[in-house]
Design a protein around this nucleic acid. Structure first.
Length: 152
DNA sequence: GCCAACGTTGGC
DNA sequence: GCCAACGTTGGC
């Protein structure tokens, strides 16, 4: 079982929304590196849920992968903001996964804390200017994040 | 709201 | 294939 981190702007989709809706399709990813990581996700992998683009960005909870490597249908929808006119049904560009809500941390782990606890090599998230919205998390880093979620 | 960092686009 | 211009992300 592997760990990932996915970013979401809480104004758009928050951990509370996730909890309420129980499941969500992680569509709209339009970055090749992030797409490739989405494709590598396996059933039962877990994803740390990160709130970005707010005053105190933080890891706020966890989701679990319940469907892998699905076609992202929004790429074919001209009315979607994620519409990609260059993608074809024969050769779809963009993939997605389905996630199930697992937990919201009682104490979220802020970016400030993450920067104190982890190096850029351990956790690319803490690198200045990093914009990757889907990334793998090393096992030992995941274990320490889970500890932090209990300790704080 | 600013702007650094980065990815993408398109002219050449 | 290079790279300037542009658009977006996201921390601050």
């Amino acid at each position: 079982m592997n760990y990932w981190l996915i970013k979401s702007e809480p104004n758009v989709f928050s951990i509370k929304d996730f909890q309420t809706e129980k499941q969500t399709i992680w569509d709209g990813v339009r970055n090749y590196q992030a797409r490739n990581f989405l494709q590598q996700m396996k059933l039962e992998d877990q994803a740390f849920f990160y709130h970005s683009n707010i005053k105190d960005p933080a890891i706020v909870g966890i989701g679990r992968i319940i469907a892998t490597n699905s076609i992202d249908l929004t790429q074919f929808d001209p009315d979607s903001q994620y519409y990609d006119p260059k993608s074809t049904q024969q050769n779809p560009r963009w993939r997605t996964v389905k996630l199930e809500f697992v937990t919201e941390f009682t104490h979220s782990i802020t970016l400030t804390i993450l920067k104190q606890k982890f190096t850029v090599e351990e956790l690319i998230l803490v690198k200045k200017g990093n914009r990757l919205s889907v990334m793998p998390i090393l096992h030992h880093v995941a274990a320490r994040i889970l500890e932090l979620a209990r300790e704080i």
